[in-house]
Design a protein around this nucleic acid. Sequence first.
DNA 1: CTGAAAGCGCTAACAC
DNA 2: GTGTTAGCGCTTTCAG
Lengths: 358, 358
Amino acid sequence: MWKPFQQQSTLPPTIYDIAREAKVGIGTVSRVFNDHPSVSKETRRRVLSVANRLSYRPHPYARGLARKRTNSIMAVIPFFTTFFFMEILQGVQSKLSELDCDVILFGVNHPDQVESSLRHHVLRSRVDGLLFFSMRMPDAFVSQFPHHRTPVVLVDAFHDRFDSLTVDNQQGAHAATHHLISLGHKRIGMLGANRESIPARERLRGFQNAMKEADLAIEPSLVKNSSSPKLDGFTRESGFEVMNQFLALGKEMPTAVVVSSDIQAAGALSAISAAGLRCPEDISIVGFDDIELASHLGLTTMRQPMFEMGTLAAEILLARLEDSAQEPTHRLFVPKLVVRNTSAAYVARERLASGTAA
Amino acid sequence: MWKPFQQQSTLPPTIYDIAREAKVGIGTVSRVFNDHPSVSKETRRRVLSVANRLSYRPHPYARGLARKRTNSIMAVIPFFTTFFFMEILQGVQSKLSELDCDVILFGVNHPDQVESSLRHHVLRSRVDGLLFFSMRMPDAFVSQFPHHRTPVVLVDAFHDRFDSLTVDNQQGAHAATHHLISLGHKRIGMLGANRESIPARERLRGFQNAMKEADLAIEPSLVKNSSSPKLDGFTRESGFEVMNQFLALGKEMPTAVVVSSDIQAAGALSAISAAGLRCPEDISIVGFDDIELASHLGLTTMRQPMFEMGTLAAEILLARLEDSAQEPTHRLFVPKLVVRNTSAAYVARERLASGTAA
DNA sequence: CTGAAAGCGCTAACAC
DNA sequence: GTGTTAGCGCTTTCAG
């Protein structure tokens, strides 16, 4: 079989190769590739041309070694919570790759792994920075490694000593509740997750505020939290279970409920149809998160701009890389309402017609 | 505020530091950390002890430079198809982290990006190997870079010149069909994706084989493919649309249908309920993939062992790293049937009762 | 078994 | 502007 071109089986060209060819010193080549101002236009052109011909690229590791930075960051994400991150990661990566910075994935299956991994990578300047998702920073890490060494930005998590980027759960829940109120609902319930979960608490507060603002009574029986410890109560089962408690109220049940997550809303929806009721007609539901499932369910929910969160996270980290001195910044993203078909205007007669269930 | 321990703000220790402390040469330290046999037990112990005390860790980049390998691989994944990979990636990462190998994420939003990225990273020995997901290898890459240079393993994709790991679509569809047959169904339909899609074709063939083996007739009217070019027809809409065509057959419609993907099955399910029919009672459905949605839908489907695929992919790549000479290996994973509640035994009378729909 | 020395490919400080 | 020279932290001969 004939080969059109010579199979180049030599080692990749180094800065020396291109220096020799271009008849300059390696320093100059280096300067060219670092956009150093003091290189004559002509020289730069020549170097670039040779480099291009040999398809030379600086070796990232050699560069990292010499420059004492790695040009890569690590994303520590909880695998067990899956794919909320996939999208954020997408934003992160797209931003970072523009700057020729690698994203190293570090998925942890159990919070215990976090600490050891942090040690492993961070201690050894394996990465320039860290993106830390949705988990509590281990205290050991916080106290042991002053974050001046390798910058960390927290995504969907908070700590006053680190940059962070979170979603405004309170605002979101407020908007969700407000949506229901503006639809004419008055008996509105809140299906929450665990009391211990910070986001869950914030969402609850948002609900309460919105109700208060609208001068609507918050009936204790219409505010229920998951008691399941699993995943802080953000599970399909907890949604199913708690919704059943609401339905058991019979004619006392809410005409609409704000659910603290889409996954719980999915459970709630099954509970509703299992009880022989229909979703927007008999009771309205609004979720939170806008996970993919939500669109399949036609669930009205609060969407978080994940891609943008990703790019912003990257930007913040980059900024921190430049200037490690500044005070931590804390950014809040406010979720947007996505109206689909689980929320409808309150209609009195419909309720009466089927309020006998459960 | 009193600090219990001196805040260590010195640079991380190098091989020199630990050599000095342990009163040995740097070569010896290096040997210790590379499990080189010729180091006396006592020396090794001493070095290790010092290293431990100073919490020393070899600098991966320096090591990479000297050793001429990076100890990291790159995963090229199509972001636009999302989270089928999340799980596979999980397997990959868990395997690789055991061996202290990093996973660099490279998500591409458009197939065009693939080539440039490949150039960028691979050409410059930025990574030791590549995991390439679900996309066609650009021909330019295949011909230009003999894969002897940096090994590639294809996951959910095929090319005879690279190691690959795919799922046995034909077997899977066969099993799905067989499941329906064993449930007593005879008028079984196939709701496929685009004819151009390889997986879609394989799944169709699996269906055909199973039917043939069971001596059941394949009625042309019961085998329909999506014609939508979008995502090769693996969309919710295509499922909805094609299922409607089946339903329009009235009493001629299939009593069960094999759907070539869960996402299409989701569409099919809505079509069914929109037509006033119920899923296992009036018509059985089995999907393919077992995406998360499937469990929420209670969809009977074919599950691919994604985590294991991930670990296996990692292993294959690792093996290839050791020995680049061998012939490419091609592994086939066979999906397993997950019975949920969209498939039920065929019952003649039920069909008659509601066969008047559409 | 172990120390010394020569790179790996690149950056940066220093001369000219 | 541009060449030269030290390293960056580690691996790997090569002597001993």
